[in-house]
Simulated assay, not measured.
Amino acid sequence: MLILKTRNELFDFIQYINAKNLSLGFVPTMGALHDGHLSLFKRAIEDNQYTIGSIFINPTQFDNQNDLLKYPRTVEDDINKLESVGCDAVYIPGVEDLYPNGLECDTIAMNGLDLVMEGEFRPGHFQGMATVVKRLLLQINPTRAYFGEKDFQQLQIIRHMVCALKLPVEIVGMPIIRESSGLAMSSRNMRLTPDFKKKSIFIYQSLLKAKELSSHYTPQKVVSKIEKMYLNTDLKLEYFTIVNEETLLTANTFDDCKNYRAFIAVFAGDIRLIDNLQIR
């Protein structure tokens, strides 16, 4: 596997791919790879003649600098995992490769998709995320790029951005990969204490309960019932909401012609976890 550490090294690799007119799959990550990430790489390898990943902990998408400092950094282990699944190359740029003029975000219109849920509680997060994804897509020019549905709001924003900017890349969303307990796989899980890791199983259980309740109650009533369930736990609920999948706007009623998804953010001690589930 090629390990590309500068924009110039990446450019040489991309030129080789383009000269041979080969399809290229791309999986952007911030490292600390787990089976959820690897599922994206396996799909990219199936779909394309070459596959490249990136590892870059993007400073502009952290609204909490302490969270940035504590984010797991496991590059050697990540490289070993990518080699084990057959990835062809990994791009590990420095900050200067993606932010040559300093840590500034591009102005990217998101049609309001960035103003709810994560956007409300993490101001600036999506501008930082969209900036780095756009710059990576422009540098790599892949045929397809792969993103997990665990960050479903991010996925919808990227789809909108790619369409608005007319970028020639297919965005592929992939299902959430869960631990045997149901807990959504996340790089943050490795920071959970054993006690909170066990208690965090309740997050997925509450999403399944919301799906069950949605057959009998309005969205607002389902949200109210789930919020009450968290009053009796050691988990601190930041938000629980049910939205239209396409617009990400709060659902007031359930329309059989539309898809609805429940989203949740929870603090397990000082670790913030998110999850979501299509409920209708």
Rank of each mutant, 00 (worst) to 15 (best):
V116W: 07
D106K: 04
E46W: 10
C87V: 15
V27I: 11
D88K: 09
Y50T: 00
N8R: 14
D106C: 06
P93I: 04
G94V: 09
V27Y: 02
G94L: 13
V95Q: 08
N111G: 06
S39K: 01
R7L: 15
Y71V: 06
F13G: 10
N58H: 05
N8H: 12
R73S: 03
L82T: 07
M117P: 12
L33H: 06
S39H: 00
G94T: 12
L40R: 10
G119R: 12
K70W: 03
T29R: 04
N58R: 03
N101Y: 02
L24N: 02
L69P: 07
V116P: 05
N21Q: 15
C87R: 06
F41R: 04
N101F: 02
Q65A: 04
E46Q: 15
V95E: 08
D67E: 09
Q65Y: 06
L33N: 01
A44G: 05
P93M: 06
S54N: 04
E118T: 02
L113G: 09
V27K: 05
Y91R: 10
F13H: 14
L38V: 14
D77M: 13
S54Q: 01
A109H: 10
N111D: 08
G102Q: 07
E118N: 08
F62P: 00
K42D: 12
R7F: 12
C105F: 06
N64G: 03
E76Q: 13
N111H: 07
A32Y: 00
D67R: 08
Y16L: 01
N48E: 14
N64A: 02
G112R: 08
L115D: 14
D78M: 08
R73A: 01
V27F: 01
L68S: 05
L115H: 14
L113Q: 07
Q61E: 11
I17T: 09
G94W: 09
Y91Q: 09
N80P: 01
V90A: 05
E96K: 13
N18W: 05
G53V: 07
K81S: 13
N64L: 03
P28Y: 02
A32G: 13
P72H: 07
L82Q: 08
C105G: 08
L68C: 03
E104L: 02
E46K: 15
T107A: 11
Q15K: 08
T74K: 04
S54E: 00
K42S: 14
N111R: 04
A32S: 09
S54P: 00
N101E: 06
Y91F: 15
F56P: 00
P59A: 10
E104A: 02
N101I: 03
E83H: 11
Y99P: 11
A89R: 13
S23M: 04
D47F: 06
S23A: 00
D77A: 15
M110Q: 11
F11C: 14
K70S: 10
